[in-house]
Amino acid sequence: MGQHPPHRARIVFYDVALEQVNAMAPAELARLDVVLRVIAALPTVGTSTKRGSARQYEMGPVRVLYVRTALGTLVLVAHVEA
């Protein structure tokens, strides 16, 4: 049997996060893309925030706040900084 590629969560942006992404320069988008790929591959990678269900993941200058669904198939991005 062949190997299946690893499952990745689908990334969805809240309106505020989408506005932040749309305002980013190409270099910032490239850094953000790397972080989003990590989160999609492993939605539990971030640390829990004080709010409970929200998670935070930082890599260098990039910070993403997100909420993952119970099954980990969907990641809702609430805030991005790059």
Rank of each mutant, 00 (worst) to 15 (best):
S48L: 14
V12I: 03
P43W: 00
L29S: 02
G60Y: 09
L71R: 11
S48H: 15
V38T: 14
V62M: 02
R37D: 12
R10D: 10
E81F: 09
L32I: 09
Q56K: 15
H79V: 06
G2D: 06
A17T: 02
Y14T: 13
Q20M: 08
H4N: 15
S53H: 01
E81A: 09
G46V: 04
T47K: 10
L18E: 13
A40V: 01
A82R: 01
H7C: 04
V77F: 00
A25V: 15
P6N: 12
P61A: 11
V75R: 12
A25P: 06
K50S: 12
S48Y: 15
P61L: 11
T73C: 14
A41M: 06
V45W: 01
H4W: 11
V35W: 02
T49L: 04
P6D: 12
P26F: 01
A27H: 11
M59W: 13
G2M: 05
A9E: 05
P6I: 10
R51F: 13
L18N: 09
A40Q: 08
L29T: 03
R37L: 01
H7W: 05
P26N: 05
V35G: 10
A30E: 14
P6G: 06
E19R: 08
R37I: 03
H79D: 11
A30S: 15
L42S: 11
A17Q: 09
R55N: 04
M1S: 15
P26K: 00
A27L: 10
G52E: 02
V77Q: 06
R51G: 15
E28A: 14
R63S: 11
Y57E: 00
E81D: 09
A82T: 00
Y66F: 01
Y14D: 14
D15N: 10
I11Y: 09
G60H: 05
